[in-house]
Design a protein around this nucleic acid. Structure first.
Lengths: 107, 107
DNA sequence: TATTTGCGTAACTCAGAAGTTACATATACA
DNA sequence: TGTATATGTAACTTCTGAGTTACGCAAATA
């Protein structure tokens, strides 16, 4: 069976999960304190957190019966790499335009 | 009713749509020539294209009965802005670590 | 003009994802 | 030890969205 790795893009496609990441950018939070910021039930938040963890967006440290979530770089890097590919596209497009202009106006 | 603007993150959450963007990074393509690269039906591709266009990832130029798709920056910029926010997070985290280390080892 | 080609849309099916409630478990506290 | 707290999980419901087929229309072509 394939390792159940998650699609980073699909994972951040969910607005609730993005909001969770935003909240965690301000502070490390437990599942419950995270859930306070949402309308959904705590188990729903718990599931989202598991997804975010599996996809490498957060790490979790167990302290007693609490679980502290904090941001983790891995997940973000995958997105970054993808965007950088297209950055290169725009850059090369700009370069082609330059060349074109230079050839059209060789004065 | 709310303006049917699309969530850029949700839009690129779909692997097929990301593949379309990749294909368009190599060349401008018509709907049909795009569809050749996929297992799904042409109407399915057509829908994806409409979504990508609405979200600002591509622009479409009608030439006769054909529609040429090419990449458009707008959609990407929204993603970039989001990632940059978290870039700042990592940067500030690094800075805090530096400060911490400097205080702990003030020799 | 008749036919083919390139495409959009409507109506439908279906799977998956996100939510729920109910329950189980482990830790902290009285 | 008994209770409250923090959490995970299973089972279920519901809804969205991605796919399909069938159809219509405009442009190209014979």
């Amino acid at each position: 069976m394939p390792i159940p790795t998650l699609d980073a893009f699909q994972v951040i496609g969910d607005p609730s999960r993005r909001k969770m990441l935003m909240l965690l950018s301000a502070d490390s939070l437990t599942i419950n304190s995270l859930a306070d910021n949402f309308d959904m039930s705590r188990p729903a938040v718990s599931k989202h957190i598991k997804i975010l963890q599996t996809a490498g967006f957060i790490s979790i440290e167990d302290i007693g019966r609490e679980r502290y979530c904090s941001l983790k770089k891995d997940g973000f890097e995958e997105l970054q790499a993808w965007l950088e590919y297209f950055d290169a596209f725009w850059a090369s497009k700009l370069k082609k335009l330059e060349t074109l202009l230079n050839n059209k106006l060789p004065n």
